[in-house]
């Protein structure tokens, strides 16, 4: 029982990383040349019961894996850890402990509206740190913010759509 669940998450992990690296990183949305980020999905889908330290560690490793492929050492890492740190806060500000019990953080368990809010907040935190750390300066702040908002919309859309097409269960 436990191992089949673990296998499932390893499957999602591999899918998210490979899809990100092999396909999405080759895509550039034209006005600002952004690549949508789907791999965050894996961190969003981890079960509610995951302990906070484990969550941080997984976030760190996932970020590092993506960084290795995109030559942005540490940038994805720092932002995924940041996102994982705030994940419990986002979850419990959107729902009570009773809602969460026995459920998974997916559209099918928690409903569309909940998932949209959850995704938007998490992705925004990730992208906010990602783009500011990548530029590593506060000059041109407005342009970076524009990038963050556009990227958040595209990544969130992709993550929400993936729930209907890929992870149907």
């Amino acid at each position: 029982m436990f191992s089949s669940k673990l296998l499932q998450y390893i499957g999602i992990f591999l899918f998210a990383i490979l899809f990100q690296v092999l396909i999405l990183n080759q895509v550039r949305l034209t006005p600002l040349d952004l690549s949508p980020m789907l791999y965050i999905l894996f961190l969003l889908l981890l079960p509610f019961e995951t302990s906070k330290s484990i969550l941080l560690l997984i976030g760190f490793l996932v970020g590092l894996t993506i960084d290795m492929f995109t030559n942005t050492i540490g940038v994805n890492c720092a932002s995924t850890v940041m996102m994982c740190y705030f994940r419990p806060n986002i979850i419990f500000s959107l729902s009570s402990r009773d809602d969460v019990k026995g459920n998974k953080p997916t559209i099918h368990h928690m409903g569309l509206m909940w998932f949209i809010k959850y995704t938007l907040f998490s992705v925004f935190i990730h992208h906010f740190f990602y783009y500011y750390l990548e530029v590593f300066t506060l000059s041109n702040s407005f342009f970076t913010l524009l990038k963050i908002i556009t990227a958040t919309i595209f990544s969130s859309l992709l993550i929400i759509c993936s729930q209907y097409f890929i992870f149907k269960e």
């Binding site: 941080l56 560690l57 050492i73 540490g74 940038v75 890492c77 720092a78 850890v81």
Partner: peptide, 13 residues
Amino acid sequence: FFVILEIFAFLMI
């Protein structure tokens, strides 16, 4: 733990 990981990531950057 969070602070340690972040420091580590920043050092890498």
